[in-house]
Design a protein around this nucleic acid. Structure first.
Length: 493
RNA sequence: GGUGCCGUGCCCAAGUGGCCUAAGGGGACGGUCUGCAAAACCGUUAUUCGGCGGUUCGAAUCCGCCCGGCACCUCCA
């Protein structure tokens, strides 16, 4: 099994190629994490889910994985107005905004959103990274890197900061397909800083003694540039050359381009052998934006009654390299599928019938097909189709499911869950397991169900149906099963 | 202007030269089950792949042009 090939599209070479590890069977993987100035939205998580599926696939191939996902808790600049001079800090801006009013300072704000991010991460059932380093805890290394780059002739100091000289690194632009000539032309319209040698030069350190987050450096008070944190943290936890680096498509330029320039200038070695970028998520066929009102955070959707695993399912139902259209209908589709897995999972847990194993061989084959699909440029739709086919095979047996078949079924669901994370969450949810319908008292529901059972017993079906209709209006759906009546809260999504 | 991704049934979405008269899900319709429902299960639902040309024995898949969507080009995953 260890000889299976894991193919992924590589942005640098613009082709699908085998993911290779410098140390056989050990993947060193860095995924760019969030800037913690607000709650993560589902588009952020589409990108993190790509990383999660890569980790899961690699593990399923029996690789060892060292996975690093950073937290950017330094504000940097909003860049909406002036990019590299006096732009506004994102954390500072968030601190002043309405939702920021409850924080005493930027540090508390960053901590709050970091904790929220980690919670969302777990709710969507992503596997924990080996290291989740924070930019603020690596400022010293970032300063040292800036000094080192000056010494090596790749950077220079000005009255406003320390800048990387793009012209000193001829490969700059290779990842994103930009030429330095194009960048010169594009940048000229946006940025004006006469202290910089070339306008495309980017900051390693910003001098600013008014910034809410500032540190002392040989260059005076200030804060590090955005790109240097990833170069420093990737090197610290994964070494000079890493196997794989991922991020959203917007990270291609400038962020990853700058990382390459910094890291390779620092070490003289190749920085990364394989680049993966996730395409943006669209919502109802449009760009997700606050002004269009189609901007969803993970917690908003959960608060509206969406099952976290359904959100996960919906977000991985398209290939990472293509735009994916997220719709309410898509979320409901996902919900229906998640429920099927839950049903199958329940079914295999309670079996008493003796007999043959009728499912083992077929399920084994389906699992292999699902894994093959993921190993083939992370083809999640095919993997999900195979997984669902297996779940249906289990459900089809129903009451006839034998103990050996159920054991095979359980093994299948366990392995599918390790691979795709859609059967059950690895994390204990502190919140109520039954989402939505918080306004309905469960005791009331139970008493209504009991009342209805009496009515049914005395063949008063009109009364029974009336109770069912009554609860339905409250958002409670009844299901009569051989073992009694169950209820589910209807999702409001 | 430069650099990429994409356009498949009512909706979402695989497939990227023959196994495609196009996977899978949702929806709809029919059936099993049920007092009736719901859930689950079974079945039906694209001779066609944005448009027009071309290459080829053969194209949704390759090439050209056109139309449409998305992204990046200094800090939004």
């Amino acid at each position: 099994m260890g000889d299976k090939i894991f193919r992924l599209y590589d942005t640098m070479s613009k082709q699908v190629k085998p993911l290779e590890t410098r140390e056989p069977g050990h993947l060193r993987f860095y995924a760019c994490g969030p800037t913690v100035y607000s709650y993560a939205h589902i588009g952020n998580f589409r990108s993190f889910l790509t990383a999660d599926l890569i980790v899961r696939t690699a593990k399923a191939l029996d690789w060892k994985v060292t996975f690093v996902n950073n937290i950017t808790d330094v504000g940097h600049l909003t860049g909406d107005d002036v990019a590299d001079s006096e732009g506004e800090d994102k954390l500072e801006k968030a601190l002043r905004s309405k939702e920021g009013e409850s924080f005493n300072n930027v540090w508390e704000l960053a901590e709050h959103y970091t904790a929220a991010f980690e919670q969302d991460w777990q709710r969507l059932n992503l596997q924990e990274p080996n290291v989740r380093p924070k930019a603020t805890q690596h400022v010293r290394q970032q300063i040292l890197a800036a000094e080192d780059l000056i010494e090596k002739g790749f950077a220079y100091e000005t009255p406003t900061g320390v800048y990387y000289s793009v012209e000193s690194f001829p490969k700059y632009g290779k990842l994103s397909g930009n030429t330095q000539e194009n960048l010169r032309q594009a940048v000229r319209e946006v940025v004006v800083d006469d202290n910089k040698r070339a306008q495309a030069d980017f900051a390693l350190w910003k001098k600013d003694d008014h910034h809410l987050m500032q540190w002392y450096s040989p260059f005076g008070w200030g804060f590090p540039g955005w790109h240097i944190e990833c170069s420093v943290m990737a090197r610290e936890y994964l070494g000079d050359t890493i196997d794989l680096h991922s991020g959203g498509e917007d990270n291609m330029f400038p962020h990853h381009e700058c990382e390459i320039a910094q890291s390779e200038a620092l070490t003289g070695k190749p920085f990364c052998n394989h680049w993966v970028h996730t395409r943006f998520l669209q919502v109802n066929g449009e760009k997700m934006s606050k002004s269009l009102g189609n901007f969803y955070t993970v917690r908003d959707l959960i608060a509206k009654g969406a099952d976290p695993l359904a959100i996960r399912y919906a977000l991985i139902s398209g290939i990472y390299g293509k735009p994916l259209n997220f719709t309410d209908q898509g979320l409901r589709d996902a919900q229906a599928n998640i429920e099927r897995y839950r049903k199958a999972d329940e079914l295999v847990a309670n079996v008493t019938k003796e007999g043959e194993d009728k499912l083992g061989a077929t399920l084994e084959e389906l699992y292999d097909q699902a894994l093959d699909a993921l190993a083939n440029d992370l083809n999640t739709p095919v993997a999900l189709a195979k997984a669902l086919e297996g779940a249906r095979l289990i459900l089809r047996e129903g009451e006839d499911l034998t103990i050996p078949s159920a054991a095979s079924g359980k093994r299948f669901l366990d392995r599918i869950n390790d691979l795709l994370g859609i059967v059950r969450s690895s994390y204990e949810m502190a919140e109520a397991p039954k989402p939505a319908a918080p306004q309905v008292d469960p005791q009331l529901i139970e008493s209504k169900i009991a009342e209805r059972a009496e009515a049914k017993k005395s063949k008063d079906f009109a009364r029974a149906d009336a109770i069912r209709t009554e609860l339905d209006a409250l958002g409670i759906e009844l299901r009569d099963t051989p073992t009694g009546t169950e209820w589910v809260a209807k999702s409001s999504i």
